[in-house]
């Protein structure tokens, strides 16, 4: 499978925060979920890819081309939905069509107008007067009306009610039906990803702490639950992170099949991304 994004040794330094050094490959035709706490570096990474901020070190290739040198070409094929970043509030919904026609070579007014109708977005309203859900839908249809190959979405579902969220996720599922299409989606609402993401990339404090396919995660990762006395009997190298509760312990493991055989008397629960995230960030480490 070809890589749609290739990131090597990426470093971006701020006074109080450092992203990287970071390597990441994103295969084409897949949905990649970028998860992590607020402030972990998800948005910084996305901004580096889009050149909104300048990287300090490393290289970023999108569609096999350097993202700075071939910026114009690359961005023709990218659709974006960014957190709190959009057209000025005073712009009317229908104006977006007029403006984008003069920006993307492949902008398709018919498609855009059809989406506006399908999602019942008022054409003459100014952006300021749209509800949060409506605005998010507008941002998404603006991002896909020039038939991009790659969608980059930063927190596209945060702050939306469950109905709108499922509508929004449906748009993404439609988009990904085309096998050439890919989505890079950052979110802290991890449940969105459990059903749709092919690969999960977990960023913590500016570094990638986990980069696995969803199937790999579901098959190999789990939570072993045991009482406190039993905890000491567990081989330290089997423990990725753990949390001691009042009566029992929750241990994050990454080789479920072996662990089942090794500790037959323990229960191993399936893990959700949320639990995984919390255990990796907040859980205690053995070494």
């Amino acid at each position: 499978m070809e890589n749609i994004i290739e990131i090597k040794n990426l470093v971006k330094k701020y006074d109080d925060f450092k992203l990287g050094s970071l390597d990441l490959n994103i295969p084409s035709g897949s949905i990649i979920g970028l998860i992590g706490e607020n402030g972990a570096g998800k948005t910084t990474l996305i901004k580096c890819i889009l050149n909104i901020i300048n990287r300090d070190e490393g290289s970023i290739k999108v569609f096999g081309k350097d993202n700075k040198e071939y910026e114009g070409d690359i961005k023709e094929d990218i659709g974006i939905v960014l957190d709190n970043i959009f057209f000025p509030e005073i712009i009317q919904v229908k104006d977006i069509d007029t403006i984008m026609k003069g920006i993307y070579k492949n902008w398709n007014s018919e498609v855009f107008k059809k989406y506006l109708q399908d999602f019942e977005l008022p054409r003459k309203s100014i952006i300021k007067n749209l509800s949060k859900g409506m605005r998010k839908k507008l941002e998404i249809i603006t991002a896909i009306s020039h038939s991009p190959k790659l969608l980059i979405l930063d927190e596209p579902t945060s702050g939306l009610d469950p109905v709108v969220r499922s509508e929004v996720l449906e748009i993404f599922m439609d988009f990904i039906q085309d096998e050439e299409h890919s989505i890079l989606l950052s979110t802290h609402i991890t449940s969105d990803l459990e059903h749709i993401a092919d690969k999960i990339v977990f960023i913590d404090k500016g570094n990638i702490v986990l980069d696995k396919t969803r199937d790999e995660l579901l098959e190999n990762y789990g939570i072993l639950k045991c009482d406190k006395d039993y905890f000491d009997k567990i081989d330290k190298k089997d423990i990725m992170a753990y949390k001691k509760n009042k009566y029992d312990c929750e241990i994050l493991i990454n080789n479920k099949n072996e662990i089942v055989k090794k500790y037959p008397e323990c229960i191993i629960d399936k893990i959700t991304l949320e639990e995984l995230m919390v255990l990796i960030i907040k859980g205690e480490k053995v070494c």
Binding site: I52, G72, K75, E76, I78, I80, N84, I85, F87, I90
Partner: peptide, 21 residues
């Protein structure tokens, strides 16, 4: 001033040839 309201600059930069345009 209107551009600054919704961080339009960041959006515009993400469009083809953003900064120059």
């Amino acid at each position: 001033a209107y551009d600054a309201q919704n961080n339009w600059d960041a959006y515009a930069i993400s469009l083809p040839n953003g900064r120059k345009n």
